[in-house]
């Protein structure tokens, strides 16, 4: 207990830890403050038109199908369509309706929209006459927003590794690691203290972040806590590995950078690109952060029937990572005896 007190006291002075603790919380607050509108305008189809080219009615029709940017002349419009950052579709008047143009580097969806827009324009009366049933979405959370929230939450959880990794590397650099060898403290005690350090930091940061940006049903709070606790524990173990392998601060920061990229990028990509149930999706569970990511995403979307898979995957990760570390430690201990 006393050891843990010293560990916490030591970490309080570490500015990297404080920043990495506060960062997700600040980002969570920022996401909360951004209104849903600013995200949704990103996924709207954008059309570019030239002033006084299309009739008032055509502009109104375009507006009901996407967002419109108006330009003074065709050259300005072309420049904006050509801009690689934009997915804008240029719309001009044609003798019997409208014609479209693209820069040719757009997403498949926008190319098809460009191909079909004149036909849609010609058939616009038929749409008004047809029966269209729009079902409200089960969850009111904006898709883009919940993705950002989950990314922030996963970052907060796995930031936990910074706390104990930095503390271990700092001790190595200051020579405290040698003193620890002769202190009346067992190796297990040391590991327990360091794991606790990363774990408590990760859990605290995640809970604070969750408070700022997540709204879940009261029945799911227990599940959310379980995911947080398991993920933070794995992250603390990851921190232990980094502390074990890194020799200097520079190396430590590099390892943390690589770990964060490895833990964050694949789940996001698999979530967006790979269909659930495929082999690749199953393989992604090899990374603990994927399980956390899918679990949180399901929870935000209000579908908790598949959440057991995530929790079981996390549990397996906890056990495997812990066992591996003990084997590693044991190996090192034996080597030091020789």
């Amino acid at each position: 207990m006393k050891g843990i007190k010293y560990q916490l006291k030591n970490i309080r002075r570490d500015k990297i830890c404080i920043i990495s603790f506060l960062l997700p919380v600040i980002v969570g607050l920022a996401i909360n403050m951004l209104s849903g509108v600013s995200f949704s305008s990103l996924s709207e189809t954008s059309f570019g038109i030239v002033k006084n080219d299309l009739s008032h009615k055509s502009v109104q029709w375009l507006q009901s199908n996407g967002s419109i940017a108006e330009f003074e002349n065709v050259d300005e419009l072309k420049a904006s369509v050509l801009d690689p950052a934009s997915e804008m579709i240029g719309v001009l008047r044609d003798e019997n309706g409208i014609k479209t143009f693209l820069s040719g580097d757009e997403l498949q969806i926008n190319r098809i929209i460009g191909n079909t827009l004149p036909k849609l324009y010609a058939e616009r009366e038929a749409v008004v006459a047809s029966i269209i049933r729009v079902i409200p979405a089960a969850n009111s959370n904006d898709g883009m927003k919940s993705l950002l929230i989950v990314i922030t939450m996963v970052t907060a959880m796995f930031m936990g590794c910074t706390f104990n990794a930095m503390s271990m590397i700092g001790e190595k650099e200051d020579g405290i690691a040698f003193i620890n060898e002769v202190l009346p403290m067992t190796r297990t005690d040391f590991i327990a203290q360091k794991v606790f350090l990363g774990f408590s930091g990760g859990v605290l940061a995640t809970i604070l972040t969750a408070l700022t940006c997540i709204r879940v049903e009261s029945g799911h709070i227990f599940l959310l806590l379980l995911i947080i606790i398991l993920s933070a524990f794995i992250s603390a173990l990851a921190g232990l590995y980094i502390g074990h392998f890194a020799n200097g601060l520079m190396g430590g920061i590099t390892y943390i950078k690589i770990l964060m990229i490895l833990f964050l990028a694949p789940p996001i990509i698999t979530y967006l690109v790979v269909p659930a149930g495929s082999t690749l999706h199953l393989l992604s569970y090899l990374l603990p952060s994927s399980a956390t990511f899918y679990g949180l995403m399901d929870m935000l979307n209000g579908q908790v029937q598949n959440i057991e898979i995530s929790i079981i995957a996390l549990l397996v990760h906890c056990i495997v990572w812990l066992l591996l570390f003990f084997i590693l430690e044991n190996h090192r201990y034996k080597k030091s005896l020789v």
Binding site: G36, S40, S43, E44, T45, Q63, S64, N65, G66, S67, I113, T116, L120, E123, R124, V127, S130, I131, I132, R133, V134, I135, P136, A137, D142, G143
Partner: peptide, 19 residues
């Protein structure tokens, strides 16, 4: 009858139905 679950953006919903 055309049935869609709303994407949260009216214009996108309109386009999906028309498409």
């Amino acid at each position: 009858e055309i049935v869609i679950v709303t994407s949260g953006i009216t214009s996108t919903d309109n386009f999906r139905a028309a498409y």
